[in-house]
Design a binder for these strands. Sequence first.
DNA 1: TTGTATGCGTTATCAA
DNA 2: TTGATAACGCATACAA
Lengths: 349, 349
Amino acid sequence: MAEYRQATVFDVAKEAGVSTATVSNVLNRRDVPLSEKTIRKVEEAAAKLGYRRNVMAASLSRRKTYEVGLLLPGFVGYYGLFAQQMERTAHKYGYHLSVFSTDMDSKVERRLLEKLLERRVDGLFCHGLAMSGDSARKVVNDGTPILFFNCWNELKHLAIGTVNLNVYQACVDAVVHLHEQGCRSFFYYGNKRAFATNEQRIHGFREGLRLTGGKHPADMIDVEDIAADDLAEWLAERSEDATPAGVMCFDDWKAFVCQNRLIEGGYDVPGRFKVVGINNEFVAGHSYPGITSFNVPYEHQADMSFRWMLTHLGEQAKLEAKGERPFSPPVAGGEVKIPLTLVERLSSR
Amino acid sequence: MAEYRQATVFDVAKEAGVSTATVSNVLNRRDVPLSEKTIRKVEEAAAKLGYRRNVMAASLSRRKTYEVGLLLPGFVGYYGLFAQQMERTAHKYGYHLSVFSTDMDSKVERRLLEKLLERRVDGLFCHGLAMSGDSARKVVNDGTPILFFNCWNELKHLAIGTVNLNVYQACVDAVVHLHEQGCRSFFYYGNKRAFATNEQRIHGFREGLRLTGGKHPADMIDVEDIAADDLAEWLAERSEDATPAGVMCFDDWKAFVCQNRLIEGGYDVPGRFKVVGINNEFVAGHSYPGITSFNVPYEHQADMSFRWMLTHLGEQAKLEAKGERPFSPPVAGGEVKIPLTLVERLSSR
DNA sequence: TTGTATGCGTTATCAA
DNA sequence: TTGATAACGCATACAA
């Protein structure tokens, strides 16, 4: 129905018998003084006409979009859950979030970035795997603030800050945990294509080995080098039968694949092999055996990221209105580490 | 760096020594005739100044945003994968996609919808579970075209069309398949809270029972009524030991939970119980035993939806430019059924 | 083939 | 406390 033109401030102003400026003032609850009567008049007129503000016009006039971008390598697993939380957090602070997935394709990445800048997003949140150096410099040069999360490469110096899950520490903890559970040989099942986010885990894994005495046999596997079908055999050949071997995996999905291939091969989990993942996704909790993992405080990570960004954008007022204490970020360009917490399950008991 | 004001068409025009209209014409490759020379001049000027079009201004002037909304009940599993595909498809057709998750909360739904309408989206894609009647009517009344997917309730009559996965037929096929594999008793493990999308499956399940002779024992289970921990025992009590029982599940995640609880309870899958899911997610393919499921043609579903919407928006030209055959939608307000294809795995062999 | 002028719907700056 | 009015950046009918 309704081929009527949408009502504008102008229509509302006429209906209420005031000026457009007054309408705008009422509807945006500004700091200017307004009489109760005009407020009521305007609000009634707006309701009557079904007025709905035009975001384009407002953004154009205000020279601020209240839109932020989120650039991810993909949509599944951790990425999707983080996106969902970021969206909630954005709305909580009165922002609109545009989520894009680069599919790990640099052509796509460049195109999406261009789209984001054309939309004049007020700020950009970006996963370390989702942005190249060229793109990052383009954004900075454009004057758009960028905040990284899960970024461990040199690009982070271009950002206003970085919010990282402490996967390093998680891997340290995992090895220590596996050792406590009786493991005397260790494997890391990783994913080269995840670059720095993989290397962080490797560092943690090594540190864990060091802390547990130093000289247990250990080896690295990568999903790129060993087909899933060969995984169980590969692990069995390289580990003793007497004591359980611990397998630290890149994430829950790798752990899931690893554990299922082991079981398929007839190896007992957790008797012969113990498995640990990261992210504590649904699949970890509902597998049998349940997969030991690390819980991610999504809300905390998202809130931290957003408050940092808002502070940079000079929106402290907004934070305080939300009852949040004014956020004092770490050193500009610094890094915040979000701790992950171990969730023990049958796969490592 | 760069606290310069962003370059505008005006700046480009001055730099190139032409008018803003010419700049706009060149940059939008319109149907108007343009001399090679001015095209080059304008493009060089734009590149030199790092000009980037302002989407707000363009949308405002054009009275069209090239933005469409996608309203989902959540972000995980099928929803997330569909969102990712819709985003790709949107970009392919030159549109921007704003994805929102209602989290199955009607307050959230209303707020998000309002945001979408404020942004003057050209159209709205909406999951059947993500929109109430009031909201749907508000959208229609607003004049914004809406297209549903996976919607089986009466709301679909408010839409320009509906694109549904044929889960009914999938369930029919599943029961027939399980029967062929030797099952002589059947269960449907569903999810009441998914309303119509659950009922479609139930209808299919019943039809499958009818087709396979009619009088095999069968029963319904719902995730709301039976705790996952009790599931295995519940199923065992209600099925004979002599022949395998088939469990058709709402989706792969339910199948995953079901299968793992059965294995945990010491029941053989697929010997004692055979399990089938829907959606063919990663978890189905990489479980052990692999879970028989139904593959979803995401790209097809997304493309079909988009072309339907674009046709409604009068953008046939855009479709043809993309080399697509002009889409002739089914009856306006009609329903398209997307077939799912069985993927056999060990869980039902 | 190119330029002029106007409109798009808000917000913000003044002045009243 | 409220009202004119000038931006905001782009697209487009119409004129040249």
